[in-house]
Design a protein around this nucleic acid. Structure first.
Lengths: 353, 353
DNA sequence: TAGATCCGATCAAACGTTTTAGCAGAATGG
DNA sequence: CCATTCTGCTAAAACGTTTGATCGGATCTA
């Protein structure tokens, strides 16, 4: 919230005098060459700091000055044309803004791409197939280095035909088709971690409020719950697994059923359900974590970190998913080729347990 | 949650046979031309559906077939090179993922850009000046049509020197420097709308919990509150304006002070404060809206729509900000040139009043 | 002093398009 | 039957780079 210091004491004038020439017709290599009295080849060599290039210090300076004076900027399009491949990575998302999650994927992808000298070209399709085809076509025309195909919630997906015309990796989704690299969150481990938080705090009778909506997360998070219980030698009790629609209302609505189970702790399919459950518990005069320990899943900042008490949960590694996607695309990680890479979901402990 | 129908009954084979040639060395115009037995000029004419072009139906078909068979894709880089200007719009953001808001700006910008045949090139700077300079340089090198410079919260900003080398518009921020077009939310109107919701429901004694952090929003939202009161002939009472840090904890912490004021309604600087206040009120045994009506500001979906009861608030038009930014950049709206364009903040009524 | 080596820099082709000018032949007009 | 117009198509320049081949001259080497 700072950075608002406009410093009116330092007028822009000084800075403006040196730069500011641009904006008319862009300066080209040739113009720089002429200004410096050399060939374009020479300028190119200097601009790109070519290793083997033998250039007299004097020449080098003249060229550098010309570049500065004219405000030269290389034309990336021309560079790409001659080099054949661009420094773009495409990211197509099915929902950019419906959720804070997509933003994290973009963020991770952008950071990692940037780190390797790539720029991100994004498109969101809002689930519209035609838009999606167009978006991919556009990326292909811009000769992207590869395409990240991402979904806002973890799910199975079909691979659009045109995607195969480029290098690609599936992010936060996967396909059963061959040759489809993918990176997804490790739901099972996440479920285990969530349950472990409760277990480590002495709880033995732990309910799990699962989602009603079918998804890899539904199966994985349940699986993790069972594994954690098993590791502690606690028999799995089917009756402790409830189901509700995965939002605040669902969590709230599950309160009554939950209380009948006589548990001391509950693990919710996601943070939003936990948020609703908080309300339900409170209405029943129960305190958290005193009367009931609660953990969520997703680590949705706006919610989890600011509930009363702050919610212990497991983080969905969207940032890391985006970054890992880029690395996989660029062949920086050793990818197992056939099976999707699972990214760890780190537990985040706060005070609801 | 559908679209998971993978339809195993339709093997990929059929589709794959026609396409699938690509991925080796990309097909060029010349190759298509040779395959069809015409010149590249002819192919270009056909690909671009040039109006004045006179092409025999027969030729047209041969070319079309060649294009399909070879799986030709135009090389946008080459096109850009010759045409001089690209179909890119750059978007530099200071925080892509810290908040759901940035996502909305991206979304709006992307939709609007796409509508006009532009693709979005994004970069996030995380407030890092060097990164920012690099990001803008990159965009300049890609010869973007223009740059959207956006901030995640509404504030004053300095215009980076290099931004001026291109067309640009400030989104969700503004500058006092000349020739800086900008589009920002109309905080004053928003404040008025928020207060009006309460006023229309018969409340006369309304508190305002403002933020402690200086920002255009702080001043604007207060101003709107005063204007709304004044319009109803209610004298402004300084003692009804509290201040707190603008998050859940702040709202919660303000409860006590608030209750001393004997008001029937409260307008919070943002939804997060309202969320905290909900907790505070509840702990005091007060019901919403029965004992106290509450409105927020921002319309942060995850929170506002799912609180109990759902929160009436005012929407921060981030999507529209992004879209309007693109329109302004492209010169599609009549821009007032000198002063920032204010975008309307629509009230969203739910059940907290 | 002739040949080799090295230095500093240039030439020119290539990348994949778009587009203007123009050309050959057919159709039309008088 | 010649002139004109129209039709269908092509040649070639241009866009701004990169890069391997080359080149003239100075400096060594023997």
């Amino acid at each position: 919230m700072n950075s608002m210091e406009n410093d009116p004491g330092t007028p822009m004038a000084a800075a403006a005098s040196t730069v500011q020439p641009a904006r008319a017709h862009p300066v080209t290599l040739r113009q720089v060459a002429e200004a410096a009295g050399v060939s374009t080849a020479t300028v190119s060599l200097i601009v790109n700091k070519k290793k083997g290039a033998r250039i007299a210090a004097d020449t080098r300076n003249r060229v550098r000055d010309a570049i500065r004076d004219l405000g030269y900027r290389p034309n990336a399009m021309a560079q790409t044309l001659v080099s054949g491949s661009s420094r773009f990575i495409g990211l197509v998302a099915d929902a950019i803004a419906t959720t804070p999650f997509a933003g994290q994927i973009i963020h991770g992808a952008q950071d990692e791409a940037w780190k390797h000298g790539y720029a991100l070209l994004i498109a969101n399709t809002e689930g519209n197939g035609e838009l999606e085809t167009d978006a991919i076509a556009m990326m292909l025309e811009y000769k992207v280095r590869g395409i990240l195909y991402s979904t806002w919630f973890h799910r199975a997906t079909a691979v659009p035909a045109s995607l195969r015309e480029s290098d690609f990796v599936l992010v936060n989704c996967f396909s059963t088709e061959p040759d489809a690299r993918a990176v997804i969150p490790d739901e099972v481990q996440g479920g285990r971690s969530a349950t472990d938080i409760l277990l480590r705090n002495g709880h033995r009778r732990i309910a799990f409020i699962n989602a009603t909506t079918p998804a890899p997360a539904k199966d994985g998070r349940l699986q993790g719950y069972r594994e954690a219980l098993e590791a502690e030698g606690i028999p799995f009790d089917e009756s402790l697994v409830l189901e509700a629609y995965p939002d605040q209302e669902g969590g709230y609505g599950a309160t009554e059923e939950l209380l009948k189970r006589g548990v001391t702790a509950v693990y919710c399919y996601n943070d939003r359900m936990a948020m609703g459950l908080y309300d339900g518990l409170r209405e029943n005069g129960l305190s958290i974590p005193g009367d009931m320990a609660v953990v969520g899943f997703d680590n949705q900042e706006v919610i989890a970190a600011h509930l009363r008490p702050p919610l212990s949960t497991v983080s969905l590694p969207h940032y890391e998913l985006g970054a890992a996607g880029v690395r996989m695309l660029l062949g920086l990680d050793e990818s197992p080729a056939d099976t999707a890479v699972k990214v760890h979901c780190p537990p985040v402990e706060r005070s609801s347990v």
